[in-house]
């Protein structure tokens, strides 16, 4: 017979753990509860009717979705390459691709300026082509994509690596082309990781602040996404900041629910 945890109490935690665990949980939960408690529910309707706010919401959803589409379009082949490719320095490439996940976002913004800013590495070339990125919505999308794409790439790579190569071999024996194998066997087999990666990527892009404000600026209606709107509102109207906070908390909760049961490996 297998002992279940707690049967005899031998695995019980020292009692000091209970106290520490309580403090830890309270620290994580209390601010969120305070956010909801402080929300100006009576003014909510009036505040949410504000046109600037609505544009920030629409802009945020659009930027996060655009960043996710970019991440998926280029990230899936990249994840494929990382999981299947045999080339030197694959580990180094994987580390480099992961780096934006742990890089301070403001540094990501400075890096994007250094690459695509007007005086950046490619800025001259872009400008010659009539393209100025900073302070445009496109820049906000790029900033969000830069910090969020690794979430998709890593999750997709894990999923692709877990697909049984025997299934792909079987599909090949049945005459399936590489595209067909990918479409009918590999991607369906990896779909849980791919979806989890998309959701994580979207959530991270939605919350992006540091890289956006550094690279794209805080231009109302163009680059002022919800996190930037929260930051701006805090100086003018803290009630609005709290309300926006509650709104984003709700979105984050929705993401958690969407990921429920998925193995999340960022």
């Amino acid at each position: 017979m297998r002992l279940r945890r707690g049967d005899g109490g031998e695995g019980a935690a020292p009692s000091v753990f209970a106290v520490l665990a309580f403090v830890g949980a309270a620290f994580l939960v209390l601010p969120l509860a305070a956010l909801v408690a402080r929300a100006p529910w009576t003014r909510a309707a009036a505040l949410l009717a504000d046109a600037d706010l609505r544009s920030a919401i629409v802009l945020s959803l659009g930027v996060a979705t655009g960043a996710t589409v970019l991440a998926a379009f280029f990230g899936l082949p990249l994840a494929w390459w990382l999981s299947r490719g045999r080339f030197p320095l694959r580990g180094a490439l994987r580390a480099l691709v992961t780096l934006p996940m742990v890089l301070p976002p403001v540094v990501a913004g400075v890096a994007l300026l250094a690459a695509f800013g007007r005086r950046g590495l490619l800025g001259g070339a872009l400008e010659a082509g009539g393209l100025t990125l900073p302070f445009t919505t496109a820049a906000a999308v790029l900033a969000a994509a830069f910090v969020s794409a690794p979430f998709f790439v890593r999750s997709a790579e894990a999923g692709l690596s877990a697909v049984d190569p025997a299934l792909e071999a079987a599909a090949a024996s049945l005459g399936a082309s590489r595209w067909r194998i990918m479409r009918t066997v590999t991607l369906p087999e990896a779909r849980r990781s791919l979806t989890a990666g998309l959701v994580l990527c979207w959530a991270r892009a939605l919350g992006e602040f540091g890289a956006t404000i550094t690279f794209a600026g805080n231009v109302r209606g163009t680059t002022r996404t919800l996190p930037l709107a929260v930051f701006s509102a805090l100086q003018r109207d803290p009630d609005l900041a709290v309300l926006l906070g509650v709104l984003m908390l709700g979105l984050s909760l929705a993401v958690l629910v969407a990921l429920r049961g998925e193995e999340v490996r960022p």
Binding site: A166, A170, S173, G175, T184, P188, E189
Partner: peptide, 17 residues
């Protein structure tokens, strides 16, 4: 793909989806 072979695998390898 080009071998035109029908394989019945011992571990079956049916496509789960």
């Amino acid at each position: 793909q080009a071998r035109r072979v029908g394989v019945c695998y011992q571990d079956r390898r049916l496509f789960p989806s």
